[in-house]
Design a protein around this nucleic acid. Structure first.
Length: 436
RNA sequence: GCCGGGGUAGCUCAGCAGGUAGAGCGCCCGGCUGUUAACCGGGCGGUCGAGGGUUCGAGUCCCUCCCCCGGCGCCA
Protein backbone atom coordinates (compact mmCIF):
# COMPACT_ATOMS: atom_id res chain seq x y z
CA UNK A 1 0.00 0.00 0.00
CA UNK A 2 1.32 3.38 -0.97
CA UNK A 3 1.84 6.13 1.58
CA UNK A 4 0.60 8.69 -0.92
CA UNK A 5 -3.14 9.16 -0.98
CA UNK A 6 -3.80 8.99 -4.71
CA UNK A 7 -7.21 10.61 -4.34
CA UNK A 8 -5.55 14.04 -4.12
CA UNK A 9 -3.19 15.74 -6.54
CA UNK A 10 -0.50 18.14 -5.39
CA UNK A 11 -0.38 21.70 -6.71
CA UNK A 12 2.72 20.82 -8.71
CA UNK A 13 1.07 17.78 -10.31
CA UNK A 14 -1.96 19.83 -11.30
CA UNK A 15 0.19 22.29 -13.26
CA UNK A 16 1.15 19.36 -15.51
CA UNK A 17 -2.42 18.15 -16.15
CA UNK A 18 -4.48 18.80 -19.25
CA UNK A 19 -7.50 21.04 -19.50
CA UNK A 20 -10.73 19.32 -18.57
CA UNK A 21 -9.29 16.84 -16.07
CA UNK A 22 -11.16 16.47 -12.84
CA UNK A 23 -9.03 16.76 -9.67
CA UNK A 24 -9.08 17.02 -5.91
CA UNK A 25 -6.59 19.23 -4.02
CA UNK A 26 -6.10 20.03 -0.39
CA UNK A 27 -4.03 22.62 1.36
CA UNK A 28 -4.18 26.03 2.97
CA UNK A 29 -5.61 29.28 1.63
CA UNK A 30 -2.63 31.35 0.50
CA UNK A 31 -4.55 34.29 -0.99
CA UNK A 32 -8.23 35.02 -1.41
CA UNK A 33 -9.93 37.65 -3.55
CA UNK A 34 -13.66 37.96 -3.27
CA UNK A 35 -15.09 39.54 -6.45
CA UNK A 36 -18.46 40.10 -8.08
CA UNK A 37 -18.70 37.00 -10.24
CA UNK A 38 -15.94 34.83 -8.81
CA UNK A 39 -14.09 34.09 -5.62
CA UNK A 40 -10.41 33.40 -6.28
CA UNK A 41 -8.78 31.09 -3.76
CA UNK A 42 -5.08 30.38 -4.14
CA UNK A 43 -4.25 27.11 -2.40
CA UNK A 44 -0.83 26.41 -0.94
CA UNK A 45 0.56 22.93 -0.24
CA UNK A 46 4.07 21.64 0.45
CA UNK A 47 4.94 21.79 -3.24
CA UNK A 48 3.62 25.15 -4.35
CA UNK A 49 0.44 27.08 -5.10
CA UNK A 50 -2.52 26.72 -7.44
CA UNK A 51 -5.34 29.17 -8.15
CA UNK A 52 -8.88 27.89 -7.81
CA UNK A 53 -11.98 29.79 -8.90
CA UNK A 54 -15.47 29.59 -7.48
CA UNK A 55 -18.19 30.92 -9.79
CA UNK A 56 -20.88 32.73 -7.85
CA UNK A 57 -23.41 32.08 -10.63
CA UNK A 58 -22.93 28.35 -11.03
CA UNK A 59 -22.37 27.26 -7.45
CA UNK A 60 -24.74 26.40 -4.62
CA UNK A 61 -25.18 28.99 -1.89
CA UNK A 62 -23.77 26.61 0.74
CA UNK A 63 -20.38 26.48 -0.97
CA UNK A 64 -20.28 30.20 -1.64
CA UNK A 65 -20.87 31.07 1.99
CA UNK A 66 -18.16 28.62 3.07
CA UNK A 67 -15.72 30.28 0.70
CA UNK A 68 -16.69 33.71 1.98
CA UNK A 69 -16.10 32.69 5.58
CA UNK A 70 -12.81 30.89 5.07
CA UNK A 71 -9.93 33.26 5.88
CA UNK A 72 -6.34 33.06 4.72
CA UNK A 73 -4.61 29.94 6.14
CA UNK A 74 -7.85 27.99 6.53
CA UNK A 75 -7.27 24.38 5.52
CA UNK A 76 -9.57 23.30 2.71
CA UNK A 77 -10.31 20.59 0.18
CA UNK A 78 -11.38 21.46 -3.34
CA UNK A 79 -12.75 19.36 -6.16
CA UNK A 80 -12.98 20.73 -9.67
CA UNK A 81 -11.87 20.84 -13.27
CA UNK A 82 -8.51 21.98 -14.60
CA UNK A 83 -8.66 24.95 -16.94
CA UNK A 84 -5.92 26.75 -18.85
CA UNK A 85 -5.92 30.49 -18.26
CA UNK A 86 -2.93 32.73 -18.75
CA UNK A 87 -4.28 35.11 -16.10
CA UNK A 88 -3.75 32.42 -13.46
CA UNK A 89 -0.32 32.07 -11.81
CA UNK A 90 1.34 29.11 -13.49
CA UNK A 91 -1.14 29.29 -16.40
CA UNK A 92 -3.64 26.84 -14.91
CA UNK A 93 -6.47 27.05 -12.45
CA UNK A 94 -9.22 24.86 -11.07
CA UNK A 95 -12.89 25.63 -11.56
CA UNK A 96 -14.38 24.69 -8.22
CA UNK A 97 -17.26 22.23 -8.16
CA UNK A 98 -17.06 21.34 -4.52
CA UNK A 99 -15.28 22.83 -1.54
CA UNK A 100 -15.02 21.92 2.11
CA UNK A 101 -13.27 23.58 5.00
CA UNK A 102 -11.28 21.29 7.29
CA UNK A 103 -10.17 23.97 9.72
CA UNK A 104 -11.13 27.64 9.71
CA UNK A 105 -8.35 30.14 10.43
CA UNK A 106 -8.38 33.12 12.75
CA UNK A 107 -7.14 36.34 11.19
CA UNK A 108 -3.57 35.38 10.23
CA UNK A 109 -1.09 37.80 11.84
CA UNK A 110 1.39 37.85 8.95
CA UNK A 111 0.32 40.19 6.14
CA UNK A 112 3.70 41.47 4.95
CA UNK A 113 5.95 44.17 6.37
CA UNK A 114 6.30 42.76 9.87
CA UNK A 115 9.53 43.26 11.78
CA UNK A 116 12.00 40.41 12.32
CA UNK A 117 11.46 40.58 16.05
CA UNK A 118 7.72 40.13 15.70
CA UNK A 119 8.09 37.39 13.12
CA UNK A 120 10.43 35.49 15.42
CA UNK A 121 7.77 35.58 18.14
CA UNK A 122 5.43 33.84 15.73
CA UNK A 123 8.05 31.61 14.12
CA UNK A 124 5.58 28.71 14.34
CA UNK A 125 3.41 30.60 11.84
CA UNK A 126 6.21 32.31 9.91
CA UNK A 127 7.55 28.89 8.91
CA UNK A 128 4.61 28.59 6.51
CA UNK A 129 6.14 31.27 4.27
CA UNK A 130 7.31 30.29 0.82
CA UNK A 131 10.81 31.55 1.57
CA UNK A 132 11.34 29.52 4.73
CA UNK A 133 9.72 26.50 3.11
CA UNK A 134 12.20 26.81 0.25
CA UNK A 135 15.14 27.11 2.67
CA UNK A 136 14.08 23.99 4.55
CA UNK A 137 14.01 22.05 1.29
CA UNK A 138 17.44 23.38 0.33
CA UNK A 139 18.72 22.35 3.76
CA UNK A 140 17.40 18.85 3.25
CA UNK A 141 19.12 18.58 -0.12
CA UNK A 142 22.42 19.79 1.31
CA UNK A 143 22.29 17.07 3.95
CA UNK A 144 21.27 14.53 1.32
CA UNK A 145 24.18 15.52 -0.93
CA UNK A 146 26.67 15.11 1.91
CA UNK A 147 25.15 11.82 3.04
CA UNK A 148 25.50 10.44 -0.47
CA UNK A 149 29.16 11.47 -0.51
CA UNK A 150 29.89 9.64 2.74
CA UNK A 151 28.10 6.57 1.44
CA UNK A 152 30.04 6.60 -1.84
CA UNK A 153 33.37 6.84 -0.01
CA UNK A 154 32.61 4.19 2.59
CA UNK A 155 32.35 6.29 5.70
CA UNK A 156 30.35 5.04 8.69
CA UNK A 157 27.73 7.18 10.34
CA UNK A 158 27.82 6.95 14.14
CA UNK A 159 25.86 8.47 17.02
CA UNK A 160 28.02 10.06 19.71
CA UNK A 161 26.51 11.34 22.99
CA UNK A 162 25.13 14.82 23.60
CA UNK A 163 25.43 14.66 27.40
CA UNK A 164 29.08 14.74 28.27
CA UNK A 165 31.35 15.10 31.24
CA UNK A 166 33.75 17.73 30.04
CA UNK A 167 34.81 20.14 27.38
CA UNK A 168 36.71 19.24 24.24
CA UNK A 169 38.54 22.52 24.42
CA UNK A 170 39.08 24.58 27.52
CA UNK A 171 37.75 27.83 26.12
CA UNK A 172 34.21 27.63 24.83
CA UNK A 173 31.45 28.08 27.37
CA UNK A 174 29.24 25.10 28.11
CA UNK A 175 25.61 24.67 29.02
CA UNK A 176 25.48 22.85 32.32
CA UNK A 177 22.91 20.19 33.11
CA UNK A 178 22.18 18.27 36.29
CA UNK A 179 23.03 14.62 35.68
CA UNK A 180 21.53 13.01 38.80
CA UNK A 181 23.51 15.25 41.07
CA UNK A 182 26.67 15.24 38.97
CA UNK A 183 27.61 18.14 36.72
CA UNK A 184 27.28 17.34 33.05
CA UNK A 185 27.36 19.47 29.93
CA UNK A 186 25.71 19.65 26.56
CA UNK A 187 28.25 18.63 23.96
CA UNK A 188 30.11 21.29 22.03
CA UNK A 189 31.79 18.77 19.73
CA UNK A 190 31.76 15.02 19.12
CA UNK A 191 35.38 15.05 18.00
CA UNK A 192 36.90 13.04 20.83
CA UNK A 193 34.20 10.38 20.58
CA UNK A 194 34.74 10.15 16.83
CA UNK A 195 38.47 9.75 17.41
CA UNK A 196 37.61 6.73 19.52
CA UNK A 197 35.54 5.23 16.73
CA UNK A 198 38.22 5.39 14.01
CA UNK A 199 40.10 2.59 15.74
CA UNK A 200 37.36 0.20 14.70
CA UNK A 201 35.52 1.84 11.80
CA UNK A 202 38.42 3.90 10.35
CA UNK A 203 36.23 6.54 8.65
CA UNK A 204 33.36 7.87 10.76
CA UNK A 205 31.03 10.83 10.68
CA UNK A 206 28.18 12.15 12.76
CA UNK A 207 25.65 14.91 12.71
CA UNK A 208 24.64 16.12 16.14
CA UNK A 209 23.46 19.31 17.75
CA UNK A 210 26.35 21.18 19.38
CA UNK A 211 25.96 23.82 22.04
CA UNK A 212 27.95 26.94 22.83
CA UNK A 213 26.92 29.11 25.74
CA UNK A 214 29.15 32.00 24.71
CA UNK A 215 26.93 35.04 24.18
CA UNK A 216 27.30 35.97 20.55
CA UNK A 217 25.89 38.94 18.70
CA UNK A 218 26.55 38.05 15.09
CA UNK A 219 24.59 36.76 12.15
CA UNK A 220 26.64 33.57 11.94
CA UNK A 221 26.30 32.11 15.45
CA UNK A 222 23.68 29.89 17.04
CA UNK A 223 23.78 28.56 20.60
CA UNK A 224 22.45 25.27 19.30
CA UNK A 225 23.67 24.31 15.86
CA UNK A 226 23.90 21.23 13.69
CA UNK A 227 27.46 20.05 13.70
CA UNK A 228 28.61 17.63 11.04
CA UNK A 229 31.88 16.08 12.09
CA UNK A 230 34.17 13.60 10.37
CA UNK A 231 37.23 11.75 11.57
CA UNK A 232 39.41 9.27 9.67
CA UNK A 233 42.40 7.07 10.35
CA UNK A 234 45.38 7.15 7.98
CA UNK A 235 44.48 10.54 6.55
CA UNK A 236 46.78 13.55 6.80
CA UNK A 237 45.65 17.17 6.58
CA UNK A 238 45.79 17.29 2.77
CA UNK A 239 43.81 14.07 2.44
CA UNK A 240 41.17 15.49 4.74
CA UNK A 241 41.01 18.78 2.83
CA UNK A 242 40.35 16.78 -0.33
CA UNK A 243 37.56 14.96 1.44
CA UNK A 244 35.97 18.18 2.74
CA UNK A 245 36.10 19.69 -0.73
CA UNK A 246 34.35 16.66 -2.19
CA UNK A 247 31.77 16.76 0.58
CA UNK A 248 30.89 20.41 0.11
CA UNK A 249 30.82 20.04 -3.68
CA UNK A 250 28.47 17.09 -3.34
CA UNK A 251 26.10 19.28 -1.31
CA UNK A 252 26.26 22.10 -3.88
CA UNK A 253 25.72 19.69 -6.75
CA UNK A 254 22.68 18.19 -5.10
CA UNK A 255 21.13 21.59 -4.55
CA UNK A 256 21.81 22.79 -8.10
CA UNK A 257 20.31 19.55 -9.35
CA UNK A 258 17.19 19.27 -7.24
CA UNK A 259 16.42 22.72 -5.82
CA UNK A 260 16.60 25.25 -8.66
CA UNK A 261 13.02 26.32 -8.04
CA UNK A 262 13.72 26.94 -4.36
CA UNK A 263 16.96 28.82 -5.14
CA UNK A 264 14.84 31.12 -7.26
CA UNK A 265 12.30 31.63 -4.47
CA UNK A 266 15.09 32.72 -2.11
CA UNK A 267 16.58 34.81 -4.97
CA UNK A 268 19.95 33.08 -4.88
CA UNK A 269 22.37 33.99 -7.66
CA UNK A 270 23.69 30.56 -8.68
CA UNK A 271 26.84 31.71 -10.53
CA UNK A 272 29.06 31.37 -7.47
CA UNK A 273 27.64 27.93 -6.74
CA UNK A 274 28.31 26.81 -10.30
CA UNK A 275 31.84 28.28 -10.18
CA UNK A 276 32.52 26.40 -7.01
CA UNK A 277 31.97 23.08 -8.76
CA UNK A 278 34.29 23.86 -11.69
CA UNK A 279 37.73 24.36 -10.14
CA UNK A 280 39.36 22.95 -7.03
CA UNK A 281 39.16 25.08 -3.91
CA UNK A 282 42.29 27.25 -3.58
CA UNK A 283 44.53 26.92 -0.55
CA UNK A 284 46.20 29.84 1.14
CA UNK A 285 48.50 29.39 4.10
CA UNK A 286 48.37 31.58 7.15
CA UNK A 287 51.77 33.05 6.12
CA UNK A 288 50.43 33.97 2.68
CA UNK A 289 47.21 35.36 4.14
CA UNK A 290 49.11 37.71 6.45
CA UNK A 291 51.23 38.78 3.50
CA UNK A 292 48.18 39.49 1.32
CA UNK A 293 46.42 41.40 4.05
CA UNK A 294 49.50 43.52 4.72
CA UNK A 295 49.73 44.36 1.01
CA UNK A 296 46.10 45.45 1.26
CA UNK A 297 47.26 47.93 3.88
CA UNK A 298 45.91 46.13 6.93
CA UNK A 299 48.06 46.53 9.99
CA UNK A 300 48.76 42.92 11.00
CA UNK A 301 51.85 41.11 12.13
CA UNK A 302 52.69 37.43 12.00
CA UNK A 303 51.07 35.70 14.95
CA UNK A 304 47.96 37.88 14.99
CA UNK A 305 44.63 36.15 14.60
CA UNK A 306 42.77 36.53 11.33
CA UNK A 307 39.42 37.92 12.46
CA UNK A 308 36.07 38.29 10.75
CA UNK A 309 37.00 41.60 9.13
CA UNK A 310 40.22 40.16 7.72
CA UNK A 311 38.40 37.06 6.51
CA UNK A 312 36.03 39.28 4.55
CA UNK A 313 38.97 40.96 2.84
CA UNK A 314 40.47 37.58 1.87
CA UNK A 315 37.09 36.53 0.57
CA UNK A 316 37.37 39.21 -2.10
CA UNK A 317 40.20 37.31 -3.78
CA UNK A 318 38.04 34.26 -4.50
CA UNK A 319 34.73 33.36 -6.07
CA UNK A 320 34.69 29.85 -4.64
CA UNK A 321 35.22 28.50 -1.14
CA UNK A 322 38.89 28.43 -0.18
CA UNK A 323 41.12 26.85 2.45
CA UNK A 324 43.15 28.68 5.05
CA UNK A 325 45.89 26.40 6.44
CA UNK A 326 48.98 26.03 8.66
CA UNK A 327 48.26 28.32 11.59
CA UNK A 328 50.52 29.43 14.42
CA UNK A 329 50.00 26.87 17.15
CA UNK A 330 49.15 29.46 19.80
CA UNK A 331 46.00 30.37 17.85
CA UNK A 332 44.70 26.81 17.73
CA UNK A 333 43.74 23.91 19.96
CA UNK A 334 46.15 21.60 21.75
CA UNK A 335 45.17 18.47 19.79
CA UNK A 336 46.38 19.78 16.41
CA UNK A 337 49.55 18.15 15.11
CA UNK A 338 52.69 20.26 15.06
CA UNK A 339 54.70 20.67 11.85
CA UNK A 340 58.14 19.29 12.84
CA UNK A 341 59.89 21.37 10.17
CA UNK A 342 58.34 24.54 11.63
CA UNK A 343 57.33 23.77 15.20
CA UNK A 344 55.53 27.11 15.56
CA UNK A 345 52.87 25.84 13.11
CA UNK A 346 50.12 23.26 13.31
CA UNK A 347 48.38 21.24 10.60
CA UNK A 348 45.08 23.04 10.86
CA UNK A 349 42.70 24.10 8.11
CA UNK A 350 39.57 26.21 7.79
CA UNK A 351 37.23 26.28 4.83
CA UNK A 352 35.97 29.78 4.13
CA UNK A 353 32.84 30.46 2.09
CA UNK A 354 33.10 33.35 -0.39
CA UNK A 355 30.91 36.48 -0.61
CA UNK A 356 31.80 37.46 2.92
CA UNK A 357 30.20 34.41 4.53
CA UNK A 358 33.41 33.17 6.15
CA UNK A 359 34.25 30.06 8.11
CA UNK A 360 32.16 26.97 7.45
CA UNK A 361 34.59 24.18 8.35
CA UNK A 362 37.41 23.89 10.85
CA UNK A 363 39.65 20.84 10.89
CA UNK A 364 43.12 19.51 11.47
CA UNK A 365 45.44 16.58 11.52
CA UNK A 366 45.44 15.36 15.12
CA UNK A 367 48.48 14.87 17.30
CA UNK A 368 48.99 11.09 17.42
CA UNK A 369 52.00 10.87 19.72
CA UNK A 370 51.20 10.32 23.39
CA UNK A 371 54.22 12.27 24.59
CA UNK A 372 53.66 15.27 22.36
CA UNK A 373 49.97 15.43 23.12
CA UNK A 374 50.65 15.20 26.85
CA UNK A 375 53.16 18.01 26.57
CA UNK A 376 50.71 20.21 24.66
CA UNK A 377 48.04 19.67 27.30
CA UNK A 378 50.45 20.82 30.00
CA UNK A 379 51.60 23.75 27.86
CA UNK A 380 48.03 24.95 27.48
CA UNK A 381 47.57 24.85 31.24
CA UNK A 382 45.05 22.02 31.04
CA UNK A 383 44.79 19.08 33.42
CA UNK A 384 45.85 15.74 31.83
CA UNK A 385 43.49 13.91 34.20
CA UNK A 386 40.58 15.45 32.32
CA UNK A 387 41.85 13.87 29.11
CA UNK A 388 42.71 10.41 30.32
CA UNK A 389 40.65 8.34 27.93
CA UNK A 390 41.54 10.66 25.08
CA UNK A 391 45.24 10.22 25.81
CA UNK A 392 44.69 6.48 26.06
CA UNK A 393 43.93 6.35 22.34
CA UNK A 394 47.62 7.19 21.71
CA UNK A 395 48.77 4.23 23.81
CA UNK A 396 47.05 1.40 21.97
CA UNK A 397 48.13 1.37 18.36
CA UNK A 398 48.04 5.09 17.56
CA UNK A 399 47.63 6.09 13.91
CA UNK A 400 47.94 9.31 11.97
CA UNK A 401 44.46 10.73 11.62
CA UNK A 402 42.55 13.89 10.82
CA UNK A 403 39.09 15.32 11.31
CA UNK A 404 36.90 18.38 10.99
CA UNK A 405 33.68 20.00 12.04
CA UNK A 406 31.28 21.57 9.56
CA UNK A 407 28.59 24.05 10.54
CA UNK A 408 25.54 22.73 8.70
CA UNK A 409 23.57 25.89 9.34
CA UNK A 410 26.43 28.02 8.05
CA UNK A 411 26.69 25.95 4.90
CA UNK A 412 22.94 26.33 4.37
CA UNK A 413 23.22 30.08 4.98
CA UNK A 414 25.87 30.41 2.28
CA UNK A 415 24.38 28.05 -0.31
CA UNK A 416 20.93 29.60 0.05
CA UNK A 417 22.48 33.09 0.10
CA UNK A 418 20.73 34.07 3.34
CA UNK A 419 21.66 37.24 5.19
CA UNK A 420 21.34 35.65 8.64
CA UNK A 421 21.92 32.17 10.05
CA UNK A 422 18.55 32.26 11.86
CA UNK A 423 16.68 31.43 8.67
CA UNK A 424 18.77 28.35 7.92
CA UNK A 425 17.09 26.38 10.72
CA UNK A 426 13.39 26.20 11.72
CA UNK A 427 13.74 27.23 15.35
CA UNK A 428 16.98 29.19 15.75
CA UNK A 429 18.45 29.44 19.22
CA UNK A 430 20.20 32.79 19.38
CA UNK A 431 20.03 36.14 21.15
CA UNK A 432 18.38 34.71 24.30
CA UNK A 433 15.48 33.46 22.25
CA UNK A 434 13.92 30.18 23.42
CA UNK A 435 10.30 30.68 22.29
CA UNK A 436 8.73 29.06 20.33
C1' G B 1 31.55 41.20 27.46
C1' C B 2 32.49 45.80 24.28
C1' C B 3 30.81 49.70 20.49
C1' G B 4 26.65 51.89 17.79
C1' G B 5 21.16 52.33 16.68
C1' G B 6 16.13 51.74 18.43
C1' G B 7 11.26 50.68 21.57
C1' U B 8 4.55 55.49 19.76
C1' A B 9 -2.48 51.85 17.12
C1' G B 10 -2.84 44.53 15.59
C1' C B 11 1.63 45.63 11.89
C1' U B 12 5.28 49.41 9.62
C1' C B 13 6.51 54.18 11.01
C1' A B 14 6.00 59.91 11.53
C1' G B 15 5.58 63.31 15.71
C1' C B 16 11.36 65.85 19.41
C1' A B 17 12.41 74.69 20.29
C1' G B 18 7.83 70.34 26.19
C1' G B 19 1.17 72.46 25.32
C1' U B 20 -3.87 66.89 25.97
C1' A B 21 -1.35 61.79 19.85
C1' G B 22 -1.04 61.13 13.50
C1' A B 23 -0.34 58.37 8.50
C1' G B 24 -0.18 53.85 5.67
C1' C B 25 -1.39 48.75 6.00
C1' G B 26 -4.64 45.27 8.58
C1' C B 27 -9.56 44.56 10.84
C1' C B 28 -15.25 45.80 10.64
C1' C B 29 -19.19 48.08 7.34
C1' G B 30 -20.55 49.77 2.39
C1' G B 31 -19.26 50.23 -2.94
C1' C B 32 -16.67 48.49 -7.41
C1' U B 33 -14.43 44.60 -9.57
C1' G B 34 -10.97 37.89 -13.76
C1' U B 35 -8.45 39.17 -9.06
C1' U B 36 -2.67 38.72 -8.82
C1' A B 37 0.22 41.82 -1.67
C1' A B 38 -6.91 43.97 -5.96
C1' C B 39 -9.10 49.00 -5.67
C1' C B 40 -12.44 53.30 -3.54
C1' G B 41 -15.27 55.53 0.83
C1' G B 42 -16.46 55.31 6.08
C1' G B 43 -15.62 53.27 11.03
C1' C B 44 -13.14 50.83 15.29
C1' G B 45 -8.44 51.14 17.38
C1' G B 46 -3.04 53.92 21.66
C1' U B 47 -1.40 52.85 30.18
C1' C B 48 3.73 56.57 23.57
C1' G B 49 8.97 49.70 26.78
C1' A B 50 8.92 50.01 32.71
C1' G B 51 9.85 52.94 37.09
C1' G B 52 11.35 57.55 39.17
C1' G B 53 12.53 62.95 38.62
C1' U B 54 12.22 68.29 36.60
C1' U B 55 7.80 71.34 35.16
C1' C B 56 1.56 74.66 35.69
C1' G B 57 2.06 70.82 31.84
C1' A B 58 6.42 65.24 29.47
C1' G B 59 5.84 60.63 23.74
C1' U B 60 9.22 64.94 23.73
C1' C B 61 14.16 66.94 28.99
C1' C B 62 17.13 64.08 33.17
C1' C B 63 18.25 59.26 35.95
C1' U B 64 17.75 53.84 36.56
C1' C B 65 16.20 49.32 34.53
C1' C B 66 14.17 45.90 30.69
C1' C B 67 13.77 44.40 25.63
C1' C B 68 15.07 44.49 20.30
C1' C B 69 18.46 45.47 15.96
C1' G B 70 23.63 46.02 13.60
C1' G B 71 29.00 45.22 14.37
C1' C B 72 33.36 43.10 17.20
C1' G B 73 35.16 39.13 20.24
C1' C B 74 34.22 33.57 20.85
C1' C B 75 33.79 29.77 17.09
C1' A B 76 31.03 25.89 13.16
Amino acid sequence: MSEQNSEFKTTKEILKLNEGEKVKVRGWIYRKRDLADNIFIVIRDSEGIIQTVLSRKNSPESIISLAEKANIESSIMVEGVVKNDERAPGGKEIQIENLSVIGFSDDFPIKGGESIDYLLDIRHLWLRSRKLTAVMKIRQSILEGMREYFKKNNWWEVNPPILTQSAVEGGATLFEVNFFGKKAYLSQSAQFYLEVMIFSLERVWAITPSFRAEKSRTRRHLYEYYHLEGEAAWMNMKDMMGHVEGLVKSAIKKVLNDRLEELEIVKRNVNILENSLKASFPEITYDEAIEKLRRKGINLKWGDDIGADEEKVLTEYYDTPFFLTMFPKHLKSFYMKIDDSRPELVYGFDLEAPEGYGEVVGGSQREDSYEKLYKRIIEEGLNPNDYQWYLDLRKYGSVPHSGYGLGVDRLVTWIAGLDHIRDSIPFPRFRERIYP
